[in-house]
């Protein structure tokens, strides 16, 4: 892909030149990213180890099946939008680097702004998803034998195996009317439940379960929430710091610092960091959503 061919027989290690034909800053950015790759790798492999050690794990296609204005039944939809946002912002970043090589300040500014917007959109999507999981209620078997509404957090995981029909009927018999009301309201927000007897509520819940609107489960392994929020949070923090770095690079471009310096290598180094964030997302997406 490079247009300049390096002649053979160059003595790289005789001094006076960079043996890697790259600046100190760029080489060290690569080594920082390599150590960061091991950090992310350790997190993801730890997640894999715990997942392999459990008989049952949360089914990603049930946990992540919603999007703004879509209440369930759409697995992979929202996360595919997030993935394409990151791929698109990666392309605008590499185009900014390309314009930098050509010393085209206007071009760099345009593509940096587009990259920053892509990063902010991704963070917005992640904020929505976290809010949805942390505030949404899902009904699981409680220690007292009845059902309870649980959110998905680092201390609650309602995404275990589905209850069998016998387990469900005995659990429903011990569930309080308040929880039954919440179960109906969780899929039918406009249901009018005032004055209904406990038996009538029970009948409505059974109807909703039979129609597939309500999924009642055993609690799942607690570790799921910790790994999900920990790893996507660590990745989200990288996206956030990447947006800040890109913003600083945009301002420095705008002020003409790189034109004065005679090269746009800082854009290249910020680009390495941004592409790394996209690279990590490939594996977070793989491990949490796809498989």
């Amino acid at each position: 892909m490079s247009t300049t061919t390096i002649p053979t027989g160059v003595k790289w290690w005789n001094g006076g030149r960079s043996p890697f034909n790259a600046s100190y800053g760029k080489v060290m950015m690569w080594y920082f990213l390599m150590s960061d790759a091991f950090t992310f790798g350790a997190f993801l492999i730890s997640y894999g180890t715990i997942r392999f050690s459990q008989n049952v794990w949360a089914d990603a296609n049930k946990v992540f099946d919603s999007a703004p204005f879509i209440h369930g039944g759409a697995p992979l939809f929202f996360v595919s939008i997030m993935t394409f946002i990151l791929i698109a912002s990666s392309v605008t970043m590499v185009l900014a680097v390309h314009e930098g090589h050509k010393m085209n300040r206007k071009g760099v500014e345009k593509f940096m702004i587009m990259t920053i917007i892509g990063g902010l959109l991704f963070l917005g999507c992640q904020a929505w998803e976290w809010t949805h999981l942390l505030t949404g209620e899902h009904f699981a078997l409680a220690a007292n034998g009845g059902l309870e509404g649980l959110n998905t957090s680092v201390i609650h995981n309602p995404w275990g195996q589905a209850l069998s029909s016998t387990e469900l009927s005995s659990a429903l018999a011990q569930t309080s009317p308040e929880v039954l009301k919440n179960m109906i309201l969780s899929h039918d927000h406009s249901a009018v439940l005032n004055g209904l007897s406990a038996d009538q509520l029970l009948e409505k819940v059974n109807e909703a379960v039979a129609a597939g609107h309500l999924h009642v489960t055993h609690p799942g392994p607690i570790a799921f929430g910790g790994y999900f929020f920990g790893i996507t949070g660590f990745h989200g923090f990288h996206v956030f710091s990447g947006v800040i770095i890109n913003l600083i690079m945009y301002i420095k471009t705008k002020l003409g610092h790189f034109d004065q310096r005679g090269h746009y290598e800082m854009i290249e180094k910020a680009g390495l960091y941004w592409h790394f964030v996209d690279l990590v997302w490939v594996f977070v997406f793989l491990c949490f959503y796809l498989i």
Binding site: S2, T4, A22, K26, H101, E265
Partner: peptide, 26 residues
């Protein structure tokens, strides 16, 4: 232009692709 776009005097050969963006879009 690309001759000036070198970050340090120790870098002997500019390794930049100053051609088109076809490969990137691909």
């Amino acid at each position: 232009m690309s001759e000036q776009a070198v970050a340090s005097p120790e870098i002997s050969y500019v390794n930049h692709d100053t051609g088109g963006t076809k490969r990137l879009w691909q």
